[in-house]
Amino acid sequence: MAKKKIDFNIIKKEIKKLISEITEIPQNELKEEADFTTDLGVDSMMALEIVAAIEKKYKIVVPEEEIPNIRSLNNIYEILKKKMK
């Protein structure tokens, strides 16, 4: 059976929507490279919510030591690409 191909463009859209809901920042203002803390005002509790939501949605586990490296949407895409291979 052919392995199901993961469409990352769809996942990117889903993640943007999810983060927009948690941070209450409109999707069109969420830039891929924007820094969560300095540009978007994400605090540590929002970061916790983001990680928990992503873990639940994609059934992955993000180890605690990796969380400080999640600084932007691009970082999240990279982590998911690695985990969902």
Partner: peptide, 10 residues
């Protein structure tokens, strides 16, 4: 727990 980190939890 839904998620527990050193810095907090859900």
């Amino acid at each position: 727990k839904k998620k527990i980190l050193s810095s907090g939890g859900i």
